[in-house]
Design a protein around this nucleic acid. Structure first.
Length: 562
RNA sequence: GCGCCCGUAGCUCAGCGGAUAGAGCGCCAGCCUCCGGAGCUGGAUGCCGUGGGUUCAAAUCCCGCCGGGCGCGCCA
């Protein structure tokens, strides 16, 4: 096996060679140059890896699939021999058109050995040069507490970053701060009104203001720091003070939640900063020089329809103010200028209509728009024992991310947020998520890890057994199945990263934990047979590494005891 | 009206072009002299929303319809 290549990689190489041989004999097209991917059959009776390329080639060559599969099988076997890979394979079958590969015991024990050698590096890839990827997510306005939907975005984005890093990418996580504009001014005014209210001089509260009770502590702070001085001056003059106090406070709360969730952003970008250093004007200038802006009805428009958008968009309003699109264009131009190979944004579903205009802007700037990928993370609903929990409590109040974190805890919250594909609506049953018992899938996985730790703590082996465990002794079906799961881990990481979908990893970890629990129930690890104990301890130790690595990528703790 | 997401077991959802459609929860029946029972074993449950099409092969891809959710501002 080539250094750094997984067993799966090597077998793909061999398969490609075999296909080339068979194709040369036949009349068909060049399938051997196309993508060749192994599937992992759910049913182990179909082998450890399987491939259905024969159907495609056979259809093109007008040949029965099974007949082609049999020819491919012969070529595959001889290529294996040539490549010296035949020791990894117990047997290969051509069945109903599929090519099913059964790994040898040697291959599986080799997997075990590489896990034990690599430890936390198992499953990691190294790519040179490392692609640079920027992921921007959460980016909630500092005008209130994080919502449950933000929490889901936080979990997905963070795990995506870790997954991509595991595949050798250089990832920057980034939070874009809308620290200027109408919403922020509204925040300042809302705080001022609460402040006036606390001082016994209430004024009518506007419909569109921020009604949430979380503004009272901020108003209280203003009272403490400034007394009633801020009411003596005109609103226009004191607004910056209210905004500053409010934004600082709310941003601090957001950071606290994210920190509790184990999520430190690499970079915080600010809209205000973009404006101050002239980047917004500059990018509008670029658009103008490229003829993508025009004036109409006293406003400035971006001709986004020329770049595939449904309609043109205003960037500067009649009153001279910029719309939110202008700074966002500048922000993305700046991200491109920073030289990323891929720029990934995670947005809520309410932003989906916005993708078109942003892509249009990137194209209009002459930037490679295909490097910008926007994924929508769908909404979260909460339930309790199957009954929906209303997300919006009173006016301006909603169930916050923090409340869920308080009730359920960071580990379980993360796991539940990652159990579904990000583009599906997600329902989290709070009672299920926080129950520290039977039915909770988080504990199922963590329990497997803790169980192994407690076994390992009991290890009392003679030195000779510990040094060179004979892994060939692992012959029980449950042992083989467990090794099969361990073998799949790198593939699961690779596929999850490629699909930009973390949830496959949570599904996998449940299966791995199940594989362990089944093995554990059936067989004793530590027995009076030192050789067998040593082999099983090695198996169990490898399992622990993979559980810990997988949980690590999910950002979930792998407890030694529970 | 237009756009996006979703309709799969009683509930929450995997599977997203391949072999007999799966898991968890819930329900029923079992398993601790022995490494952690937060575990394991067995059982019942399905016109994969619907009608067409593409394909050797469709829950999966394409089109129509029905049902649910969310968007569609010179708000962000």
């Amino acid at each position: 096996m080539k250094r750094g290549a997984t067993l799966e990689d090597s077998l793909s190489y061999v398969l490609r060679q075999a296909l080339r041989q068979v194709e040369r004999g036949g009349a068909g097209g060049r399938f051997s140059d196309g993508p060749l991917t192994w599937e992992i059959p759910k049913d182990p009776s179909f082998g450890d890896l399987s491939n259905s390329i024969s159907f495609k080639v056979a259809a093109a060559q007008n040949e029965p699939p099974q007949q082609f599969a049999e020819a491919l099988l012969q070529a595959f076997l001889s290529c294996c021999r040539q490549a010296g890979a035949d020791e990894w394979i117990e047997r290969v079958e051509a069945k109903a058109g599929f090519l099913n590969v059964f790994l040898s015991r040697q291959a599986l024990t080799q997997v075990l050995r590489s896990i034990l050698r690599q430890g936390r590096r198992y499953g990691m890839r190294r790519v040179a040069p490392a692609p640079a990827i920027n992921i921007e997510f959460v980016s909630a306005n500092p005008t209130g507490p994080l919502s449950v939907a933000h929490g889901r975005q936080a979990a997905v984005g963070d795990v995506l970053a870790r997954l991509l890093r595991s595949q050798g990418c250089h990832v920057t996580t980034e939070y874009y701060l809308n620290d200027e504009g109408r919403q922020i001014e509204l925040l300042g005014r809302s705080i001022r009104l609460r402040y006036a209210e606390l001082l016994g001089r209430p004024e009518p509260f506007p419909e569109e203001g921020y009604h949430g009770a979380y503004l009272y502590p901020i108003a209280q702070e203003c009272v403490k720091r400034f007394g009633d001085r801020l009411l003596c001056e005109p609103e226009a003059k004191t607004l910056p003070t209210f905004i500053h106090v409010g934004q600082t406070h709310l941003l601090e709360e957001i950071r606290k939640d994210l920190a509790r969730f184990g999520l430190p952003f690499d970079r915080w970008s600010s809209q205000r900063w973009l404006r101050v250093c002239g980047r917004i004007d500059a990018s509008l200038q670029t658009l103008r020089s490229r003829g993508a802006l025009y004036e109409s009805e006293e406003a400035t428009w971006f001709a986004s329809t020329r770049f595939g958008d449904d309609k043109d968009r205003v960037v500067r309003k009649r009153d001279g103010e910029l719309t939110y699109l202008a700074p966002d264009i500048a922000y993305h131009q700046w991200k491109f200028q920073r030289g990323y190979d891929q720029i990934l944004n995670l947005w809520g579903p309410d932003h989906h209509g916005y993708i078109g205009r942003l892509k249009a802007a990137v194209m209009a700037l002459g930037l490679p728009a295909d490097r910008l990928v926007v994924r929508i993370v769908q909404l979260v609903t909460l339930s309790r024992r199957g009954k929906p929990v209303p997300m919006s409590k009173r006016q301006g109040e909603f169930v916050t991310f923090r409340e869920v974190l308080d009730e359920v805890g960071a580990d379980a919250t993360r796991f539940f947020f990652l159990m579904r594909t990000m583009e599906s609506h997600l329902d989290v049953d709070l009672e299920l998520a926080k129950s520290q018992s039977q039915e909770n899938p988080v504990y199922y996985v963590q329990y497997a890890h803790a169980r192994i730790c407690s076994i390992l703590a009991k290890e009392r082996l003679p030195w000779w057994a510990r040094c060179r465990p004979n892994l060939g002794l692992l012959q029980e079906p449950e042992e083989r199945l467990l090794m099969r799961w361990l073998f799949q881990y790198p593939t699961v990481l690779r596929l999850s990263a490629a699909a930009l979908e973390p949830h496959g990893l949570t599904v996998y970890l449940r299966k791995l934990a199940e594989g362990f629990h089944v093995f554990y129930t059936k067989h004793r690890v530590i027995s009076d047979d030192p050789k067998r104990s040593a082999a099983r301890l090695a198996l169990v130790r490898a399992t622990r590494h993979v559980l810990a690595n997988g949980l690590g990528i999910l950002g979930i703790s792998a407890p030694r005891r529970m």
